[in-house]
Write a protein that binds this DNA or RNA. Sequence first.
DNA 1: GGAACTCGCCAC
DNA 2: AAACGTGGCGAGTTCC
Length: 469
Amino acid sequence: MIDKKKLFDAYLFFHEGQLALAEIERAGIRIDIEKCLAVRQDLSDKISACEEEFKKTFLFQTWEKTFSDRTNILSNVQLEHVLFKVLKLKPIKATAKGRNATDEESLMQLGIADVNVLLRYRKLRKIRDTYLEGFIREQTDGVLHPFFNLHTVRTYRSSSDHPNFQNIPRRDTFARDITRKVIFPRKGHQLLEVDYSGLEVSIAACYHKDPEMLKYLKSGADLHSDLAKKIFNVPVIDKTIPVYKKLRDAAKNGFVFPQFYGDYYKNNVDRICDWIGLSPSREIKEWDDSAGIKFPSGLTIAQHLKKQGIKCPNDFEAHMARVERWFWKEKFKVYDEWKSKWVTSYQKQGYFQTLTGFICKGEMRKNEVVNYPIQGSAFHCLLWSLIQLVKIQKKEGWDSRIVGQIHDSMIVDVNPAELMHVAKVIKKVTCEDLPRVWQWIIVPLSVEMELCPVDSDWTCKKLWEIPET
DNA sequence: GGAACTCGCCAC
DNA sequence: AAACGTGGCGAGTTCC
């Protein structure tokens, strides 16, 4: 049954939420426009040089022979033709519409050095044309005012545009440095970023209430390390040793998170192999002893896996099928049962209602049915916090301002004189007030804070904690 | 000549 | 049996 009270609360909540987001949009975020222009020029020079380099390759020469004056190295239709018709290479995978894919992953698997130059060219173009051009175009008086929308996303998350503030590079160090080094606080201020730690996993637990997961969330034990131990059969994961950190990251990003989104073991194999430096090709009968990352002892991951009887990707796939089965049918059995029940209920009712009161209806696939409520409700935790903080900011007359939001994190432009107070209030609102008001939150919430020095750009952020007393 | 689609790629 | 969730955006391509 639809809980009408909760639904009406949700309706009012989004009105309040959009007003808070409007304040964030109005505050805006400062960029260094001179720097933007200089960086854009520098990128243009690099792009020209890269293009010249590409023109020397065999790949380009074949391309130009085929398309003559119509040659356009940004055309993937042309690239597909050159690679798979002219050069008759074996396609790696298909796109959604059945063409031969020419994305980074596929190109790398072709085993042709020439594609590296093209990929570098694409990366540079992306940084310049999507990010810097966007910043320059959208700024007024050196300030960006990205929009934050609540009416565009099926899960009741937010979106952002003009420019999109929610997809500025972070993982790739080169792209990150270029794009984030133009983003600043107002003069004499500093940027503070506050992230909810593992928010989606915590909110998922409020739905399924799996005792094993609740144990992790309440004890602070490390799920990803435990999975790394299981997948690679190692006794301990010491995150300070690079190779073990890699194994943990492989377990986290190659298995745990994809599984939570509804992925399955066959894809997990490819992702994990990528992380640990092994080929995932099922044609390989046995990995070379020298393959993959190395333990401090000098043993390679290939040698280590072979000792477990896993000597090739096919063996690893069989192993991961067992791990997956254990993961859902034993370890997180209650979570798995919740997913089935949630889907069955949706199929019977034709809709479901989130813990935050929102209704999702219409045709949905299984994975969507179990993912939407989690994704939406997690974001609503942030949105609730933003509403309170904007109110407090106004009431107390802060000079500090929230200037951005990325699903489970907020970016604050802080007056240094207010830093301690602002940080304490944020911590109280996000971790104490919220779970008190939303009683369905049955797990502890925590935030991680990162702070930049005064007048420093966004890349200067360092892990930071509120000092005692 | 512009709308709509497709692909690739960035974020969570 | 089925098989990764949500967006925005640039550039190329297709369609009218």
